[in-house]
């Protein structure tokens, strides 16, 4: 009996915990810049361990939606329950939340005046108050995991785009977050560097991390995603399993988007 359970838990993929463990619940969130409505009533739930890929035409509000989840963008209406915080929230709870929600940006946003090591230890030391030696240990393990431990004392400017983005992922992971947000993580990369970043993300998904990924990499969405969200005009037009999403489009805008993506070759292997 016990052995069985252990085996089961070893086999256990992220899907196991999903049904009862909601980590993000958005209720009718709205946001506008002046008269322009960016988010127009988004409601959805994300479960622990789920990998959600957010796709759609540019200007549809994908990035803005992602950035509302760690309160980089304040919302005008509605509410977001994320982990144990309800947004909008006080500055203090937002800071607390952000320590548990990692984010990776399109343009990496590494601290250019610090070495790779310093990039990785700054947040753990200042936000989580862990010791330098502990933070260093963590940094070394993480850099090993993203396969760039030999670059630890270089500066970001000396690294390739793909390496920089892997450092950025490691930097976010150094806070031991429970959720990871990726905002077009491969869009600023040269084509030959896309896969090294996607591989790291794939490993992360395998390890059971809850991930929300705004992306144009349709193959990644198909292979790694548990769910695909299609956003257009600030609305969540479609939310379905990857198979369903790519094989049986239900929304005319979704079909239009898919045919464009596929004919333009934007979907990389």
């Amino acid at each position: 009996m016990q052995v069985l359970e252990i085996e089961r838990s070893m086999d256990m993929k992220k899907r196991e915990t999903k049904d009862n463990d909601v980590v993000i619940r958005c209720k009718n969130i709205k946001k506008s810049y002046g008269r322009f409505q960016v988010l127009n009533g988004i409601s959805t739930e994300v479960h622990a361990g789920e990998v959600v890929c957010i796709v759609g035409p540019s200007g549809g509000g994908k990035s803005t939606f992602l950035r509302t989840l760690n309160a980089l963008e304040p919302i005008n209406e509605g509410s977001i329950d994320i982990l144990d915080v309800r947004l909008p929230a006080s500055k203090k709870s937002v800071e607390h939340l952000r320590r548990e929600v990692g984010m990776v940006f399109q343009s990496f946003n590494l601290f250019m005046h610090m070495s790779v090591r310093e990039n990785l230890i700054l947040a753990p030391m200042t936000a989580s108050k862990i010791s330098r030696s502990e933070a260093n240990k963590r940094a070394e393990i993480l850099l090993n995991r993203v396969d760039i431990s030999d670059q630890i004392d270089k500066f970001p400017g000396q690294l390739s785009g793909g390496q920089q983005q892997r450092v950025a992922i490691a930097r976010a992971l150094a806070m031991e977050p429970r959720i990871m947000l990726f905002d077009e993580p491969t869009s600023a990369l040269d084509p030959e560097m896309v896969n090294e970043v996607l591989d790291v993300m794939r490993d992360l998904a395998q390890s059971g991390m809850t991930m929300l990924v705004v992306t144009h990499e349709m193959n990644f969405a198909r292979e790694v995603g548990d769910r695909v969200m299609f956003m257009v005009d600030g609305r969540l037009a479609v939310s379905s399993s990857p198979n369903e999403f790519f094989e049986n489009p239900t929304d005319p805008r979704q079909s239009a988007f898919l045919s464009k993506i596929i004919s333009s070759g934007a979907s990389r292997p």
């Binding site: 980089l72 800071e95 952000r98 601290f111 005046h113 700054l122 947040a123 936000a127």
Partner: peptide, 25 residues
């Protein structure tokens, strides 16, 4: 702006954002 956003997203306290991220460059 991205430097500040990155440090905000990591939950770095404001004092350190000013002293370690903004001030040196």
């Amino acid at each position: 702006r991205g430097q500040v956003e990155a440090s905000l997203s990591l939950g770095i306290p404001e004092f350190y954002i000013w002293s370690r991220i903004i001030f040196p460059p």
